[in-house]
Design a protein around this nucleic acid. Structure first.
Lengths: 189, 189
DNA sequence: TTTTGACCGAATCGTTCAATTGGTCATTTA
DNA sequence: TAAATGACCAATTGAACGATTCGGTCAAAA
């Protein structure tokens, strides 16, 4: 395991526990067992180090979403599974969850940028699936970018936002059936 | 014009200019030309006064939405017009705009409650329209509360959020056509 | 009886100064 | 000689503290 990786691992731990703002480079150096200056031989600054780690996190999230996609299943089934998995990642992945909390509490610019990046990655992932299903003639030809955005926002609204303003949350089955009756219905041939 | 109304008017001015947090009861009293203690003969506390004003604002917003609804037009046309009007209100109504800014900057509890109230009022307004059109046999029978929530969140995403993350905003026509092709399409008989 | 504004405890604000931080680079280490 | 280190520095942050302000109260005034 080389030094760069040790720094990345150490920083991932610290960002996950303390968030971006409260993580110090001194601390990362200690966890990694390197001098603080060594960090700057690999990364220009704190934000570049953070970005490296976030890119890895996004890759991990997409891999988890890809696992639940089953070749041969309908667009709805696969889109639903992938979106649910990515929204679950949002809550169970320690670093991502920490980032969301920090964005709300502090509005750290570096963190706001990351939230935006992750969301764009999700929309892009869904858009690519839409394009594939359209090309296969399995769903209607639609503006895949707008539909991907709509699906993302709609799932976010029902899986997350709904719980904030309603006492009774919606089950995954209820959500799936509702979207089958609405958005996915509109995509059917 | 009675004293209570003068206090309400004064407070509306102050909340609109300075927001909830930065508005003092001393200031409201001065603008209204009353003693500070007089305010408390009508309102238990600052938050109750704020609520009174917010309820009036919500009523005003609903009236503006009702104006753009034309009897005999399709559900899509009317829902679209009403939602666009209510989202426009969000930006043009001085108090509401101030509330949104304050919620983002300070997370004042009283203000967060208000945002939630307004959004619930919008969803309820749309739900009632959905119920009416279903009863008239003009759209499919759907869970009107969930569809109203979906419509609200979708419009908010495309009218507001989209502009934050994309350089080119979507025109009203583009938005209307997109929803015609998706959500409204799913509601058609 | 209604209105007022001085009063009060709690909260907020502005100031000061010590502590901390990200990044740098002279020195040390390999 | 190249890579690693951690003391150093300017800028920023945080803690402490006194002054001020605030929402709400109520005795006094109108």
């Amino acid at each position: 395991m080389d030094r760069k990786q040790e720094i990345i691992d150490a920083a991932t731990k610290s960002f996950s526990l303390f968030g971006y703002k409260a993580t110090t480079m001194d601390q990362v150096a200690k966890i990694a067992n390197v001098g603080k200056g060594t960090i700057y031989t690999f990364f220009d600054n704190k934000e570049v180090l953070f970005q490296e780690i976030v890119i890895r996190m996004i890759t991990e999230m997409k891999q988890e979403a890809a696992i639940v996609i089953i070749e041969g299943k309908s667009f709805q089934e696969n889109a639903h599974a992938a979106l649910m998995k990515m929204l679950e990642f949002r809550e169970t992945h320690q670093l991502y969850a920490k980032i969301i909390i920090e964005e709300k509490e502090w509005k750290t610019p570096a963190v706001q940028l990351v939230i935006s990046q992750v969301e764009k990655a999700i929309v892009k992932f869904v858009k690519e699936k839409i394009d594939k299903y359209i090309a296969n003639g399995e769903i209607r030809a639609v503006n895949s970018e707008l539909v991907a955005y709509l699906l993302f926002k709609a799932y976010l609204a029902f899986v997350n936002d709904w719980n904030i303003t309603h006492e009774k949350s919606l089950s995954e089955v209820e959500i799936a059936e509702f979207f089958q009756d609405t958005i996915f219905r509109s995509l059917a041939l």
